[in-house]
């Protein structure tokens, strides 16, 4: 009953003990219980889209509330700090510096926060600022981390990674 309540409506779930290679009875007595949810393949695409639009939103959609909130707080705060550190968000175009295109794509992986920052006009950055490169690094790594979060949301929806709240 407790596990079913934790999983929420629309999913099938059960509680099991983690195996550590010892006796089953020892497992049940010593290891933490982990909630295992059934796969929701139909939720994979919307979860990935939401995860791209707002970091952590895909996990919230999949009812991994705690995990989603922590990921959202960490990644969005990293991006905001990067903008405050005078990062350049305007995309690099052309092939004179191909690696710069990849850096711009990494920033775009942040989703809505990236486009909101651009719409607010804080995207030019200040190349003379002492923290300019720090800002670039924060915004780019934030986007790259969000790509990992999107992939994790996909694996979670497909039932390949069904532990953790």
């Amino acid at each position: 009953m407790q596990a079913a309540a934790a999983c929420g409506a629309g999913t099938t779930c059960a509680k099991i003990g983690l195996s550590r290679g010892v006796g089953v009875e020892d497992d049940l007595a010593q290891t933490p219980e982990v909630i295992v949810r059934a796969a929701r393949p139909a939720a994979a695409v919307p979860a990935c889209l939401l995860a791209w639009l707002l970091p952590g939103a895909g996990h919230l959609y999949l009812r991994r509330t705690g995990k989603g909130l922590v990921l959202m707080g960490a990644i969005v705060s990293m991006f905001v700090l990067g903008v405050l550190l005078d990062a350049r968000l305007q995309p690099y175009l052309g092939f004179d510096d191909p690696l710069a295109i990849l850096r711009s794509l990494a920033q775009m992986a942040m989703g809505v926060p990236y486009f909101v920052a651009r719409a607010l006009g804080v995207d030019a950055g200040q190349v003379v600022s002492v923290t300019h490169e720090y800002g670039n690094t924060f915004t780019e790594v934030g986007g790259l981390l969000n790509i990992l979060v999107i992939l994790d949301a996909f694996d979670t929806a497909m039932g390949r990674k069904d532990t953790g709240a």
């Binding site: 982990v34 705060s77 990293m78």
Partner: peptide, 22 residues
Amino acid sequence: NLTIFSAVVSTVFAMLLRPDTR
């Protein structure tokens, strides 16, 4: 900056790579 960067990246990795709070 190094401390903040390390804290955020460690937090995200921990959330993605480990199943329980401990």
